[in-house]
Write a protein that binds this DNA or RNA. Structure first.
Length: 601
RNA sequence: GCCGAAGUAGCUCAGUGGUAGAGCAACGGUUUCGUAAACCGUCGGUCGUGGGUUCGAGUCCCACCUUCGGCUCCA
């Protein structure tokens, strides 16, 4: 969207070429300055942290004498509006580093002084002033505070200085600012919509699962949630079968010797549940892969046996930090659609290519278009440059072979190998990281895996790991929010609600339900003594895809009258015709019934 | 783990030291033939748990449990 040149006046010359995105970022950063200035008016002794522009808005961190309250935010917001109305110019100044450190120290701003002290000696130190507020800042900024668009302060919360839990805890205020009121309204609508779709709320309302203090952060799956789970699991198994996988299952309770071999004892023990088991120290498994290594080693493998593709849906246990737990998104007991491919080095590109195809295939019936990111060698890494050249080349080669567009995440790889991260966008435009595809040379070495090569010698295989849903728990959280609980028929816990209009139709309704059962469909009869309208309303609120209304005419004709969740309804459809149609849609895993999103403001 | 907030009936919430409430749900009865809430009645709470202050605590204090927001998207 083009912006009139006099609508927002760009102060700095470096802004002339900037696109709308940079302009918005600049405005957000300027708004953060105005907020910091308002906070200083309220708390003259506040010490300033950092205040960057972020996606959808900005934040600023402060060291304050007391915790902020919602009333404080209102007061800060009011002071900010006054500054915007005052049309204060932003003025840039530059000074030397030592002088800057001295100034910030004298001003009682230790965090600012720390930042400046870390800048290179020769670097230009710039400050931006508006009104009486002068802040260390690289810039650029708006010309004046009047250029700040509609904004709102959202919430305050704690944040460690520089994200380090050993350092002081500051208070962070988040805010959002946009170029137009419509943009701000749309953003606030999205926040509100996300709140309404919260999977924790929908999970309770749709009777999918519950949580209990007796086992914190571990879901109890109800019959309806389990139906959804099984639909997902069946699909994952089908995709794995198509990909040539076989399935294994491995123990949850494993002695520490295995974890010492795999390296988890040294690197992952903090996240494991560990205890004594009959004179041995053992742990609940946080990952499946080490045990697959043991299965591989149970016989002498030939190069002809590879690749060996193992799927594992075992239960995993991770002792997460209590503060990180969040609904289905972070649980302590979870299940993955885990895949380990043990293959020859010359098969790695093909196997990664297969993984990429399976990722696309498995996400297809959800309507997700996965995006791929190649994460390359980090600064802290194991192995030689030759190794990384080769491993990165293998992943890049597979992406090319599969003709998959991707972006780069330089330095984002694991310390032992590069990886391909897979992202999806949900219905609200939120980005979620889903699958990760990793190639692993470490584990085969630690477990001393070998196979008999074609030349009669021994060789070491490579492992390609991935989980496409990631964990079932988290994926169910994501799709619950994505579909707002209105799952397509193939996933819906109850696919058909049979609604007899009067008590005399209940028997026929039972026959219809049994016919649905026989076709492998999930159906219930609402035989409560309620009026049909009430039953329809309840089925709608439960987001059941199809309601079958049954009255005299249907009963006499052996027919059903389907009403879809979208409101569309027909009458007198033959029972067999209806069942065959629905069964086909479920088996094809159609995105059906589909309702276009409600219009956003 | 840390900072802040919250926890009252199955759910959503009222209740500012003086007899625990409402709507929905559930249950009982009546009712029920065409596409989003029939009517009447009844039941239901150790106010998260434990301790303390007080003549008296859902309300004030302390500890614990659980949940929610957040803890680098780096001047």
């Amino acid at each position: 969207m083009a912006i009139e040149s006099d609508e927002i006046k760009s102060a700095a010359a470096e802004l002339l070429d900037a696109g709308a995105h940079d302009r918005l970022d600049t405005m957000r950063h300027s708004t953060a300055h105005v907020m910091a200035s308002a906070v200083l008016e309220l708390f003259p002794d506040a010490k300033l942290g950092i205040g960057p522009a972020i996606r959808d808005g900005f934040y600023y961190d402060f060291d304050l004498p007391r915790a902020l309250t919602p009333a404080d935010l209102e007061s800060i917001e009011a002071r900010m509006r006054a500054q915007v109305a005052a049309n204060l110019p932003f003025e840039r100044s530059e000074i030397g580093r030592d002088e800057a450190v001295a100034r910030e120290t004298a001003a009682g701003q230790p965090y600012k002084a720390e930042i400046i002290g870390e800048l290179a000696a020769g670097e230009v130190i710039s400050f931006y002033r508006h009104g009486t507020f002068n802040d260390l800042c690289r810039g650029p900024h708006l010309e004046t505070t009047a250029g700040i668009g509609p904004f709102k302060l959202l919430n305050s919360a704690a944040a460690y200085w520089r994200g380090d839990e050993k350092r002081p805890m500051l208070q962070r205020i988040y805010g959002s600012v946009w170029e137009t009121q419509e943009d701000l309204d749309r953003y606030l609508w999205r926040l509100e919509e996300a709140r309404k779709r919260d999977h924790r709320k929908l999970g309770r309302e749709l009777d999918l699962f519950s949580f209990h203090p007796e086992s914190p952060a571990a879901p109890f799956w109800h019959p309806r949630g389990m139906a959804l789970w099984r639909a997902l699991e069946d699909w994952s198994r089908q995709v794995r079968t198509e990909g040539g996988f076989v399935e294994v299952r491995t123990p949850a309770l494993v002695r520490k010797e295995l974890w010492e071999t795999s390296g988890h004892w040294a690197l992952y023990q903090d996240n494991m549940f560990v205890f004594d088991d009959a004179d041995h120290v053992a742990g609940l498994k946080p990952m499946n892969c080490p045990e697959s290594m043991l299965i591989f080693k149970t016989s002498l493998r030939s190069y002809r046996d590879l690749p060996m593709r193992l799927a594992d849906y075992s239960w995993l246990f991770r002792n997460e930090r209590t503060g990180a737990l969040a609904g289905m998104f972070r649980v302590r007991q979870l299940t993955q659609d885990d895949s380990h491919v043990i293959c020859r080095e010359d098969q790695v590109v093909d196997e990664v290519n297969l993984a990429l195809r399976l990722v696309r295939r498995q996400f297809e019936p959800f309507g997700f278009q996965p995006r791929f990111k190649l994460a390359t060698r980090p600064d802290k890494k194991l192995g030689t440059d030759e190794f990384w050249d080769m491993a990165e080349g293998q992943l890049a080669g597979a992406l090319e072979t599969a003709q998959i567009e991707h972006t780069l995440d330089p330095g984002g790889g694991a310390f032992y190998a590069p990886k391909i991260d897979v992202f999806i966008d949900d219905a609200l435009g939120r980005e979620w990281q889903m699958a990760t595809i990793q190639i692993d040379y470490q584990l085969p070495q630690r477990f001393e895996l070998e196979y008999r090569a074609a030349d009669g010698g021994t060789a070491r295989p490579v492992v390609v790991h991935y989980a496409i849903y990631g964990s079932f728990e988290r994926f169910i959280g994501v799709i619950t929010e994505h579909f707002a609980g209105a799952f397509p028929a193939w996933l819906a816990p109850v696919q058909v609600m049979v609604i007899p209009i009067a008590d005399r139709h209940v028997e026929y309704a039972g026959k219809v339900r049994d016919a649905l059962f026989e076709a492998g469909l999930r159906a219930e009869v609402d035989d409560r003594s309620e009026r049909m309208q009430a039953k329809l309303r309840d089925a709608q609120e439960q987001k059941v895809p199809v309601m079958l209304v049954l009255g005299d005419r249907d009963q006499e004709a052996g027919a059903v009258s389907p009403r879809l969740r979208t409101g569309e309804s027909t009458q007198g459809v033959g029972m067999a015709v209806f069942i065959a149609d629905l069964k086909g849609r479920v088996e094809r895993r159609e995105l059906w019934p589909y309702a276009p999103e409600e219009d956003q403001p």
